[in-house]
């Protein structure tokens, strides 16, 4: 798969998603002496998913800091450091553990600038490995993007490609406010061409991965790839699906989605978080309230995670989140007016 980030005429190199994130962090550590990495076992261990890798050897333990297993305290230290002049990149081993740090993320980091009337800034990045498919069951597989997307003051992104993983991380570091990056664990090994050197991918911009006429599929994270797979199958039957990679949950790219739905008249939202009150609900409501409403020619459909914790059994685990055949079937239903 090709990296879709539009960087004209630059040198690219094949990297995995994890390597692209590491590359971004290395560039950031080199460019900006105030950048530090914090997290559990991100030093010699290299991170739970080997994302920080050998960075501790290159930048030392002062800048690649192992923290105790103290998610709340660690996140709070990152907030305090950001408030006073550092730019921490804080890694949670699993996004699930961010539940331990909700206080610092939601009550402190997100609100500090506002509570202090613009007199303070919290420029930090929380990296959160997320998603199911690894057999890690209920407490290590969740997709919390809607939780954090509900909090004014936070920005929430979900890169789906190595190039975006790098570009969004560097953009997040440039952002003067806290940014949460959900990295899908199943994508860490995915390889693609990634531009070399420094660049940023804008936060808040979706990307049309595959243009189409008949139905708009808005997907995020790994669902983008499943949607593209479904779109190929649909194309064989003459159904031309447009696949949009949401990339950013907050802020959401209204314009791109509205323009697409105006064109296709049909919308399918695909996301891994629990279906109810999820990202798809927001996109659906946004379309219903927008000028695209008068162009809808079918009900809006959502495919999301099951109303259950992520189960352990591999078949159950697959059944708990949208897979390509389900996306294909739902798009077909929309186009064939079966719903």
């Amino acid at each position: 798969m090709n990296a879709q980030t539009a960087i004209p005429e630059v040198k690219t190199r094949e990297m995995s998603y994890a390597e692209a994130i590491r590359d971004a962090m290395a560039i950031a550590l080199e460019r900006d002496p105030t950048v530090i990495l914090m997290g559990e076992d991100i030093g010699v261990y290299g991170g739970a998913f080997q994302v920080t890798g050998d960075l501790v050897e290159r930048f030392g333990t002062d800048r690649v800091m192992d923290t105790p297993i103290s998610e709340l305290g660690g996140a709070g230290v990152a907030v305090g450091a950001a408030l006073t002049g550092l730019k921490p990149i804080f890694e949670f081993q699993f996004s699930d553990f961010a539940a331990l740090a909700m206080e610092q993320i939601v009550n402190q980091a997100a609100k500090m600038r506002y509570m202090l009337g613009g007199e303070a800034a919290v420029p930090l990045v929380f990296r959160m490995p997320a998603g199911s498919g690894t057999g890690a069951a209920a407490q290590h597989s969740q997709s919390f993007e809607a939780w954090f997307g509900h909090v004014p003051g936070l920005k929430v992104v979900q890169p789906s490609t190595p190039a975006d993983a790098k570009g969004l991380l560097l953009a997040a570091l440039e952002d003067p406010d806290p940014v949460i990056i959900f990295e899908h664990k199943l994508l860490y090994k995915m390889k693609a061409q990634v531009p070399e050197g420094y660049y940023t991918t804008p936060i808040g911009k979706a990307q049309i991965m595959r243009p189409g006429r008949d139905v708009t599929i808005v997907a995020s994270a790994i669902m983008v790839h499943r949607a593209l797979e479904a779109a190929e199958k649909l194309a064989k039957d003459g159904i031309d699906a447009e696949v949009i990679d949401l990339r950013s949950v907050r802020p959401i790219d209204r314009d791109t989605i509205i323009a697409s739905v105006r064109k296709t008249g049909r919308l399918l939202c695909v996301y891994e978080g629990v279906r109810t009150l999820g990202v798809g609900a927001e996109i659906s409501a946004m379309i219903a309230e927008s000028e695209a409403f008068d162009y809808l020619d079918a009900p809006i459909l959502r495919l999301g995670g099951a109303e259950a914790p992520i189960p352990y059994n591999p078949d159950l685990e697959r059944a708990a989140v949208p897979q390509a055949p389900a996306i294909e079937a739902a798009a077909r239903q929309l186009v064939r007016r079966e719903v």
């Binding site: 959502r302 495919l303 109303e307 259950a308 708990a320 989140v321 389900a326 719903v339």
Partner: peptide, 11 residues
Amino acid sequence: AADAVVTTPVA
């Protein structure tokens, strides 16, 4: 019945 994936409430 678990019906997380394909939901066709209208149909």
